[in-house]
Structures are given as structure tokens and as C-alpha cells.
Design a protein around this nucleic acid. Structure first.
Lengths: 220, 220
DNA sequence: CTTGGTTGTCACTCATCGGTGAGTAACAAC
DNA sequence: GTTGTTACTCACCGATGAGTGACAACCAAG
């Protein structure tokens, strides 16, 4: 495939555009593979996520995935490593000019932030869907990385605010997070959830209002 | 059980114990196929759900699936048809001796019933997981059957109780259902959800308490 | 120059998938 | 018996999956 002068070229001055010189650069190739894997997972989902597809997307041979990442498992680990920075990249740290006086203020804001961040990130959505659909080694690693990142973010944002007495914040927050994740997943898959349409901005306003109502109901 | 290849050699007086005489009974075969499909979906999930696997599980040739159900799509339709009776079979209609005076009473009870029913039904869990993971024709049909069954059940149980003013019951209930579904799916897949362990009965008590708290917070 | 390691490509094996066309076993009517 | 229908099995196809071993191109050190 590389330039071969011996090849008979009937057209002497034909543009040599197509050979597409592949540079010998391991670092660049590794990055291309990782990027292709993330893009593929985000766009196609975990159903069609495989060695062949990733190699195709990265424009290289699958052998290189085995060499550089040790196969799909290692590649998934590499994706998981990126996940640690997800919330940091995606969710603003400041309070957006609001004064968060109570735990309810905080959780209302965090819920909406999390909802929005998840809606905006197809890769993360696929990973969440993967988590609830399979229980393999690959998924477990991804899941662990994700939940750890989420937990540290939550802890950091909480600051010194204390939840009200009489509620179990871990359990309640788990349910809230579950609700947000499932709502976003359902919307992404079918445009609705349990009879509630989730397509237009108007639809989402209703969902957000209900979510706020729920958070306020439990946290005041 | 696939036919033993030795069957091809007609030994006249060989012990006929193992051939496992397959009766020529179309109805029985159809039921076997449907049962195998449901069992396979419940146990293995939608990942390994295919014509070959179902035929293997039903102990018949896959050709029969094409003949009797018109392929996988028709088979999925048949599964969906069963789904209509799910809530009727799984969830008690009576109030368990309670007087449901308010909408909050009702929704608290329904939430816990739904949670329990979903925890007890692996097939339904797989279908829910399928719904949020894919958007194919097959899934859409299943999803429609399920959501319709759920909606009619909810409507019937509601009776004449009216939700409190100022809340959007459709949106709020959608979020509650989403939360329940995701909690159960997460637990089933990884034994935890957002840092909340969900393995022991004790764990589930906490989750149920938090769920009740949330329902009461929004509906009073 | 030769040598050896790195980078990338190719050509395979083996398994499984969905799907199909041809053939066989049971049975009822004549 | 013969015939025709129904229930069922078998053998194969092309496509695609994961995984592996051998080889070509390149580059730097000796």
C-alpha cells in the first residue's frame, strides 16, 4: 500500500492523494484507538462494541489493540481511567451565583446539574445502560470508576451542609440518582418514560419541575 | 437436547431409552418454544437472545420458530402478549386490609408493590434493561405492551382518589417508576446503586424506607 | 553494511450468528 | 397399500465475531 515506484502508473502526473501515508507513531495510534473506542461506545452502544469495530473506527489493525491495550478489557480500563475526570469536566464547581443555604438547596441544584450533564453525554449514558444490563468484568471496572468519581464529586460539593434529621441521605440520594439515570436513559432510548413524553424542551421542563418537587419534598 | 447422531444408524433392537421421543404436537412445541424464549431472556438477558439459542433451549429446530412465529420478531410479540397479564398475575388487587384514604397512601403502597414485583420477576427486569439499552423494533413492541399494562393497572388502582393540587402526577409518577426500575436493575446487576448496597434484606429495608419518605414528601 | 527492535499489515483459524432449501417421519383419508 | 398433509430435522450458506502467527516496512545502533 505504501508508495511503490515500480507500480505501473499509466497516468504519470496523477495526484497521489489516496495512499494516505500512515505515520509510524505509537502514541498517536494509541490515542486514535482510545478515541475510536469511546466514540463507538457512545454512538453504537455496547451491543456492537468489539475489537473489530474499534479497529475499523480507528483505521488500524485490530492486532494493535491487542498489542497496546491487551485486548478489549485493557481498552475498557483505559476508558474507565478517563472517567475519573468526567464530573470535573462536565459539571461546574461554582454555585452559579446562588447561595446554597440548605441541604435541599444543594440537592435540588445537584440533581438538575446531574440530569443535564447526563443528557449531554452519550458515552456516559451508554455506560450507565451497560451497567444495568450486564455483569461482566469489563462493566464492573467501568462501573467502579464511574461511581467513585460520582461519589467524590458529591462529597466535595456537599461541603459542610448537613442533611436534615430523620432521613437517610445515602439511600435517598441513591434513589434520586437512580431516577435521574433511568429517566435520561428511557428518554434517550424511546423518547418517553412511563407515559411521560421526553422529547421537547417543554417535556423536560415538566420533568425537571417534578424532580425539584420531589427533592424539595424530601429535603425541604 | 440435540438428537444423538447415533440415531441415524437404525439398530433394530437397540434400547430406545435416550431418543426422548418427540411427540408430534404443534401446540406443545409452540408452548415449548415460547417458554424457552422467556426462560432464556430471563436468565441470560437480551445479549445472547437469538434464534439459535432459543431453538437450543426448546430442544427443537430453529426452523420451527420461523414457521410458527415468523422469526424472532414474532416470538417477541408473543412474549409481549403475555406481558399484558403481568401486573394482574403479580400484584394483588386488594388493598391488603388497608384503607387508602389519600393519594399519598395509594402511591406509597403502589410503589412498594411495584418494587417487590419487579424484584421477583427476572424476565421483567431483563425487558426493562432491554428497553433502556436498545431501540429496535422488537424492543419497541415489548416496551409498548409493558407500559400499557402498567398504565391500565395504575389507572385501575387509582380509583377515584385525586392527587393533591400543585403537583403533576404524571411527571412525578414517571420519576418514581424510573427510580424503582433503576434501583432494581442496579441491584440485580451489581448489588448496589450509587453507593447504596442492595443485597441483604436489611439493605432493602433502607431503600424502601427512603422510597416511602420520598413518596410521602411529594404526596403528603 | 548487518542486526535487532518497533510499528503496522495480512492471512489465516475457529466459533457462532441468522437464514434457507431440501429432505424425512408420522398420520389421516382413500 | 398409495397419496397428501402436517410436523419436524438436517445440512448448508454467507457474514461476522475474537484471537493468533507470520511477515513487511522502518529506524537506529553496532
Amino acid at each position: 500500500m505504501l508508495n511503490d515506484p515500480m507500480v505501473l502508473t499509466p497516468i504519470a502526473d496523477a495526484p497521489q492523494a489516496e495512499p494516505e501515508k500512515r505515520v509510524r507513531d505509537r502514541g498517536a495510534t494509541e490515542k486514535a484507538i482510545l478515541a475510536a473506542a469511546k466514540a463507538l461506545l457512545a454512538q453504537e452502544g455496547f451491543q456492537n462494541f468489539g475489537i473489530n469495530a474499534v479497529a475499523r473506527g480507528a483505521g488500524c489493525d485490530k492486532q494493535l489493540i491487542y498489542r497496546y491495550y491487551g485486548g478489549l478489557n485493557g481498552l475498557v480500563d483505559a476508558i474507565g481511567a478517563d472517567l475519573g475526570t468526567w464530573v470535573k469536566d462536565r459539571i461546574p464547581e461554582d454555585t452559579g451565583g446562588m447561595f446554597l443555604l440548605t441541604y435541599g438547596d444543594l440537592m435540588e441544584r445537584l440533581s438538575l446539574l446531574f440530569l443535564q450533564a447526563l443528557r449531554d453525554d452519550p458515552l456516559m449514558r451508554r455506560i450507565v445502560a451497560w451497567e444495568v444490563s450486564e455483569n461482566t468484568e469489563q462493566v464492573r471496572r467501568l462501573s467502579e470508576a464511574r461511581s467513585k468519581a460520582l461519589a467524590t464529586w458529591l462529597e466535595r460539593m456537599r461541603g459542610s451542609l448537613a442533611p436534615p434529621k430523620g432521613v437517610d441521605p445515602v439511600a435517598v440520594n441513591a434513589i434520586l440518582i437512580a431516577a435521574i439515570q433511568h429517566i435520561v436513559l428511557s428518554a434517550s432510548a424511546g423518547g418517553q418514560c412511563a407515559g411521560l413524553a421526553l422529547k421537547t424542551p417543554k417535556d423536560w421542563e415538566k420533568a425537571e419541575a417534578a424532580l425539584k418537587r420531589i427533592v424539595r419534598g424530601v429535603y425541604g
